[in-house]
């Protein structure tokens, strides 16, 4: 039953009209060009990291080698930066998800004076150039919180400011699509308010949570513009280390590091996609588990009994 339902569903989702002739050809060309446009820079980076040349100039390599990968992994600022960035990204993701989920929930569910203002506040940093945010925070840290400068917490906090608008809007959109009566039904059935949220609301916004988490993590991990103001040059996050090294040398060590990051991002995205799919899979498994043996009837109509 379930597989039939699923296939019917995917059939509908992918059941686009298949164009013919000129229109289809034009669309094919357009899509190919777009894909090329997006993928070409990635290809250049990946290609040059396998190059034996001394300088990454974007051209076809004159020979092949894995030495730049070894160089990248042995380069001390990269090693330190990688650990640093992972910590910052993990902390920033955790904080922005927790705070963002609470804020999105409050905005979606409660009518209170200033809800519109709160919404605006969360969107504001988006319209502020990141370098300006970075500079403001540098001034703030320098004058009020000198201990935050150059620490995982200090940088993660700065990243949270950048991530929150995104997290709040993604989770807000997911929550807006939910019927508030569901949580009330859970409470009516004996679940305390926190339990009702965890059991009923959370599972339904799980795909949005995962998407927000992945985006937050990657954004924080990649962030340079704001971060560069908040750390001393001798101990930096990975993207800042890449940036600083590029200022001195243009050998393919940085492209090798970038290739590793591309691979890492792809793995993360794939894992997230699987996790998001897991929601549906879990329900399918449970249906199969508790369902009656044999095919339940496919009647959508009312039983006559």
């Amino acid at each position: 039953m379930t597989s039939r339902t699923t296939s019917r569903l995917t059939g509908r989702l992918t059941g686009r009209p298949t164009g013919t002739g000129l229109g289809a050809a034009a669309r094919g060309v357009f899509l190919t060009l777009t894909a090329g446009f997006v993928l070409l820079p990635l290809a250049v980076v990946v290609l040059s990291s396998f190059s034996a040349d001394e300088v990454a100039d974007g051209g076809w390599p004159n020979g092949w080698s894995l030495r730049w990968f070894r160089e990248a992994l042995e380069y001390e600022p990269f090693r330190v930066g990688l650990a640093y960035s992972l910590q910052v990204a993990a902390l920033a993701t955790a904080i922005s998800l927790a705070v963002g989920a609470a804020a999105a929930y409050a905005i979606a569910r409660y009518r209170f004076p200033g809800a519109a203002l709160l919404r605006a506040v969360f969107v504001m940093p988006l319209s502020l150039p990141r370098v300006v945010t970075g500079f403001c925070l540098f001034v703030l840290y320098a004058s009020l919180f000198p201990t935050a400068y150059g620490t995982v917490g200090g940088i993660a906090f700065a990243h949270c400011l950048l991530l929150l608008p995104f997290v709040v809007s993604v989770l807000g959109a997911a929550l807006a699509g939910l019927d508030p009566a569901l949580e009330e039904a859970a409470r009516d059935l004996g679940a305390s308010p926190p339990r009702a949220f965890l059991r009923i609301t959370l599972p339904q916004i799980r795909p949005a949570l995962i998407a927000a988490a992945v985006f937050a993590f990657i954004t924080s991990f990649d962030e340079v513009d704001t971060s560069v103001f908040l750390m001393p040059a001798d101990q930096t996050t990975l993207p800042v280390a890449v940036f600083l090294r590029l200022e001195q040398q243009q050998d393919p060590t940085v492209t090798a590091m970038s290739s590793l990051l591309i691979a890492g991002s792809l793995l993360l995205a794939a894992a997230a996609a699987l996790a998001a799919r897991g929601v549906g899979a879990a329900l399918v498994a449970r249906e199969a588990g508790t369902g009656e043996p044999g095919e339940p009837k496919e009647t959508r109509g009312e039983r006559t009994a």
Partner: peptide, 23 residues
């Protein structure tokens, strides 16, 4: 609500869409 000996059948049913009928 969660400690009252009453139960409510909501106007639109309010069934949990991510749970099976049994659950």
């Amino acid at each position: 609500a969660h400690r009252r000996p009453t139960n409510l059948v909501f106007q639109q049913g309010a069934l949990f869409p991510h749970l099976s009928v049994f659950d």
